[in-house]
Nucleic acid binder design. Structure first.
Length: 570
RNA sequence: UGGGGUAUAGUGUAAUGGCAGCACGACAGACUCUGAAUCUGUUUGUCUAGGUUCGAAUCCUAGUACCCCAGCCA
């Protein structure tokens, strides 16, 4: 089932299961559905997948894997005016990238339109459905309100034969859009609005991305979805909470038809702080150019997170960690970031790169000399080996690694303080040279030749170790820094009359163009990712070219010093 | 004020009548050639009020708060 997932836990073990898995384990035990487990992920191809979908994907494909069952990918393409092939393609790419597969079980609701039509005719013959001539507005009026019952449509009493004929004419395109619907005959006074004669088919003279102009009537979700599940012999139809009060209708259709009856189970959708999760809002961000596209690295879309450098394993880990329940919760984005850092920490090779360069001259280092120093690729993974990094008289370090009149707690460069250049030497700063504006532009330093490699033979210690890049050998690059897309935990927390976009973070993207990389980064693969030591995790952006190397910052490293500074400012 | 749901630490999530646990966060310390990682410790919780019981997060009763539903969207 899953192509490269490590997570495995048998659905039968005694570990605590979430409520969905508990239901399934129980059904398995009692032999319901012959102890078969078959789930499905049923996206509508009307947008890009986001992290909320990933939760559902991991749930459905994960359950199938754990219970040794199957999970189908099914496009719920019942509304041609909103759906496009582009989305069909991107959705498949994203699910595969996440590490899941569906073998030959790729299905489309549109392939079932014929069967659905026949079943509708059956309901009509049984007096359970009728063609209604009410307009959309009239239908709304007849439906009643939350506290008042609706009233029967004047067309409710049409005979079966008349209904059949009208329905066939609807199918044949004899009526314009919106003039007729097929409705289920249930109960206009039901306290559940969904049961007040819900629409099963509407007339839509629209070209469908798969069936073309073959159909001009299209089934509504409530009518279609259970049938799709039933046709595919789905045992457990897992969906989100808002479908809870659609379940009686889901059940009603299947009962009337007396066909295979899957069990619908609802769970709470995923919410995360500092971002939005509705397709509508994501679309608005894209269309109003608040972001650069669906795959903007700040977006919570799968494609955005992929471009940002989040790994499939970390997203799967996150989805597993957040759990499954019916409580409407909001997950702290720090948990997502934790899962990403955890995976990257294990696998990302370390390199040195300077984002905001400050020139350093080692005054007592021989002019024109270059030494190759050995650097460890991943301290957490000895098998990653080592590489050599060139050292010379003129270097770059981060501007933030020097401070004038630094406090004792500042372990980096300040006049007279000895620090270690990682894998290189102990170096002492003698003087900071300033430009006419008083800004520090260069550090004059001396090194201790006896400390080559980074250790002092006399055993003396230094508190600080900083990264550096040899100026002569440095590779230039552009680096894009990302931060939360919104400044508020809940972007919908707005002033009266404001839209969630009022909470957009103006600093969510910062582009740095004068970054200096160690030379090993001159040629990298398109999907290369790494850790810039002491800075964060980075990956090559799709905009990167050999002439203009572009890195995205996936996430910064946790930064205790920044935290201390922030506290002192308060 | 119709109906359907849900309430456990700052945020999530376990415990199915028997010691309220875990993760993330926060805080403190150890270690450190990444102020990272790692390790150790601390902190904070059963929505409220009654009841049943030797014993209640769990069962009962009554409240409270929040979410969802009046598309020919899904």
């Amino acid at each position: 089932m899953a192509e490269n997932t490590n997570e495995s836990n048998s659905g039968e073990n005694t570990k605590s299961l979430d409520f969905v898995r508990s239901i399934i384990a129980e059904d398995n035990k009692t032999g319901k559905h012959e102890s078969r487990v078959h789930t499905r992920f049923p996206p509508e191809p009307n947008g890009y997948l986001h992290i909320g979908h990933a939760k559902s994907i991991c749930l459905n494909f994960g359950i199938a894997q754990e219970f040794e069952g199957l999970c189908n990918l099914r496009f719920d393409d019942t509304n041609p005016v909103k759906e496009e092939q582009e989305y069909v393609d991107s959705i498949q790419e994203d699910i595969r990238w996440l590490g899941w597969g569906w073998e030959d079980r790729l299905y489309f609701a549109s392939d079932y339109f014929g069967q659905m039509y026949d079943w509708a005719a059956q309901l009509i013959k049984n007096g359970k459905a009728y063609v209604c001539d009410l307009t959309a507005e009239e239908t709304r009026e007849y439906r009643g309100t939350l506290t008042e019952p609706g009233k029967n449509s004047p067309y409710r009493g049409r005979g079966a034969q008349e209904n059949i004929e009208l329905f066939e004419k609807m199918k044949n395109g004899d009526f314009p859009d919106g003039t007729k619907t097929l409705k289920a005959k249930i109960d206009m006074s039901s306290p559940n609005m969904n049961m007040r004669d819900p629409v099963m088919y509407r007339i839509l003279h629209a070209t469908h991305h798969r069936t073309g102009d073959k159909w001009c009537i299209y089934p509504m979700y409530d009518w279609a979805h259970g049938l799709e599940d039933s046709i595919e012999k789905i045992t457990h139809s897992i969906c989100t909470l808002e479908f809870e009060h659609h379940r009686p209708l889901y059940d009603w259709f299947l009962d009337q038809l007396e066909i295979f009856h899957p069990q619908q189970i609802e769970f709470a959708r995923l919410n995360i702080t500092y971002t939005v999760m509705s397709k509508r809002k994501l679309l608005e961000l894209v269309q109003q150019n608040h972001v650069l596209g669906w795959d903007d690295p700040r977006m919570p879309t799968i494609s955005g997170m992929r471009r940002r450098g989040f790994t499939p394993a970390s997203i799967r880990d996150f989805c597993k960690t957040v759990g499954v329940a019916k409580f409407n919760s909001t997950i702290d984005i720090a948990l997502l970031e934790h899962c990403v850092r955890k995976d990257l920490n294990d696998h990302a090779p370390r390199v040195m790169a300077v984002l905001d360069p400050l020139k350093v001259v080692i005054e007592n280092y021989p002019e024109g000399q270059t030494e190759e120093l050995e650097a460890i690729n991943n301290p957490n993974d000895p098998s990653a080996g080592t590489r050599s990094v060139p050292f010379s008289k003129v270097l770059y370090i981060e501007k933030t690694d020097y401070m004038e009149n630094a406090p004792r707690k500042f372990y980096r460069f300040t006049e007279g303080r000895e620090v270690r250049l990682r894998y290189a030497y102990f170096v002492t700063c003698n003087e900071a040279i300033k430009d006419e504006n008083g800004e520090v532009v260069e550090l004059r330093c001396t090194y201790d030749p006896a400390t080559k490699g980074g250790d002092a033979p006399d055993g003396r210690k230094v508190k600080g170790t900083i990264h550096w890049v040899s100026a002569e050998h440095a590779v230039d690059a552009e680096v894009r820094l990302y931060d939360h897309l919104f400044t508020k935990e809940n972007p919908d927390d707005t002033e009266e009359g404001e839209n969630f976009t009022a909470n957009l973070n103006p600093d969510s993207l910062k582009v740095l163009t004068n970054c200096k990389l160690e030379p090993s980064l001159a040629n990298t693969e398109p999907d290369f990712y790494c850790q810039f030591e002491r800075t964060g995790y980075f990956c090559i952006d799709k905009d990167s070219t050999p002439e203009n190397i572009v890195f995205n910052r996936t996430l910064n490293l946790r930064d205790t010093w920044a935290k201390i500074q922030k506290q002192q400012k308060k």
